[in-house]
Design a protein around this nucleic acid. Structure first.
Lengths: 301, 301
DNA sequence: AAAGTTGATTAATATTATTTATCAATGTAT
DNA sequence: ATACATTGATAAATAATATTAATCAACTTT
């Protein structure tokens, strides 16, 4: 089949109007060039050059072919350029998934950082349940996800980021409001508001206090903020990850109380397809999260 | 270096999203395709495909590259198309040279014929002296020439077309006007008007009657018609090739008289560069001239 | 006439592409 | 769970192709 080398040959001859000089320009010997051109002419069943002793001239059809061949070669060069430009893994949109109990609190922290460390990488963020994030990761709908461990999927890979403890959240006039700490077992006596079991965070809470699986009040919806507001409205108490209980989220109508040691914990990780190639984007996200260095997040090496 | 095969490979994989099917489509085995793609990725230092077990997906840069690669392949296909279209040698302008003593009489005859047998071949006609036509042929300024023999030039080739006799042309009141034929030697007694010696026809006449080289009246200018008009004006007599003495060129003021046998003759031929590739155009011209079949032109096999 | 061009040709060689056979990883069906 | 099928990658052997070195014939120039 026609080769790019052959196209280079004919363009060179068209420029030089001399086989030997053209061959030199192409860094091959003259016979190599002659044979290549003959092969092309044979394939196209067309004479491109009129060979005289004095000089080489283009046939009419030859001129047309040379023009098109030059275009091909330019387009090929453009492929190399594109590859060069696009080599920067931190360029181009990154599709990031997060579980609902992390997204609202982590995202505002890392976005300003990433805007500096990866300015050409717009984020397309999706909040969803762990199970959906997993499927989306596998299907390439998202590239990276922030989830809670455990998270073992054959084709996916993860890296643990940090541990965070849970806090108890009660209305300001609740009888626990002045307590300094709570034991997990005590929760079973209270009306505890939780998201439905699709949410890994709820499962982690019920794991810490198994009694709740029977007594806890299960809510539809995806937002911990809804629950926080319900607590403020005196409809019950709840448990939140401490990233959600930072002062900046404080509400005068609620009180945050830590668990008695050992407090229940969850481990947050970043996950991606094993085959995902833009590994630098992951490094940058990991760096961004580490850079937050809040005291409620126990960073992992 | 990047090859068109590799570009075909990646485009096929991008379409099929499966290496084996893509390989089949390219009529190669799967390893050949895999290696080819790896080679390309290595050369560009870029990952084009994310390889999963489930499916193959394009990286962002990969999509860009595929797009450009498709363009290249289309442009390559276009080269083949162009070659196919342009293969018709009878398409495109043909640059035709003719000597002055042939052009005005032959051209009007063959143009209507060629317009039918080679409708897509416009003629660019140039009238000139044999010596100039020869140079123009060699330099590619013209492609084909109609000249009189002899015409032996190393890099050029010719084919004899026809012989034509010469006629004597005298004013209607000339003392030869009633003669049925003239002997060449008799010309030396008369005032014979001829073109200058750059014109092969004049040389052929003086060759037939050597005396003329001393006595003939030599005119500047390139047109036999000027001479015919001068004869009509009683300024002398002349000799014309019989293609120029056909009835259609008749002038009531002149009389055409044949030479006594053996009449002087010239042989007309068509010439071209040995390296000229549009040989069909020459065939068509030869055919056109043969098709004239006038009795004053002795066609040659 | 001699020397120096030109592109073509040939046979030997180097390089490259392709295949065959196989693997490890992973998914699917039973 | 276990067997089976499918994915793309890999290694070694082979086939195909491109390239070179050496030479030629045709022609021009000196």
């Amino acid at each position: 089949m026609m080769s790019l080398t052959e196209l280079k040959f004919i363009v060179a001859v068209a420029q030089e109007r001399n086989f030997r000089r053209a061959a030199e320009k192409c860094f091959v010997t003259q016979p190599a060039l002659s044979l290549g051109i003959k092969k092309l002419e044979l394939e196209l069943n067309v004479t491109i050059f009129e060979r005289n002793r004095l000089d080489v001239t283009l046939t009419e059809i030859g001129a047309t072919i040379i023009e098109q061949a030059s275009k091909v070669l330019e387009d090929v060069a453009r492929i190399k350029q594109l590859a060069e430009l696009g080599k920067n893994q931190l360029k181009g949109t990154l599709k990031l998934g997060m579980i609902h109990s992390v997204g609202p609190y982590l995202l505002p922290e890392i976005i300003p950082i990433l805007r500096k460390t990866a300015p050409d990488m717009p984020l397309e963020v999706e909040e969803n349940l762990t199970a959906n994030l997993e499927a989306q990761l596998r299907n390439g709908i998202i590239d990276v996800a922030i989830i809670a461990l455990p998270f073992d999927v054959p084709s996916l890979q993860y890296k643990a980021l940090y541990d965070e403890e849970f806090d108890v959240v009660v209305p300001i006039n609740h009888h626990w409001a002045t307590r300094k700490q709570i034991n997990a077992q005590e929760l079973s006596d209270e009306k505890v508001l939780l998201l439905n079991s699709g949410h890994c965070f709820s499962n982690q809470v019920t794991q810490a206090c198994p009694e709740l699986s029977r007594k806890g009040e299960i809510l539809q919806g995806n937002s911990l903020e809804t629950i926080r507001n319900m607590v403020a409205s005196n409809l019950g108490i709840t448990v939140l990850p401490c990233s959600a209980t930072a002062e900046r989220y404080n509400n005068p109508l609620i009180k945050v109380i830590p668990f008695a040691s050992p407090a229940p914990t969850r481990r947050i990780a970043i996950a991606w397809r094993k085959s995902f190639v833009r590994v630098e984007t992951i490094e940058k996200i990991v760096d961004a999260i580490r850079a937050i260095r809040s005291d409620y997040m126990k960073m992992l090496a």
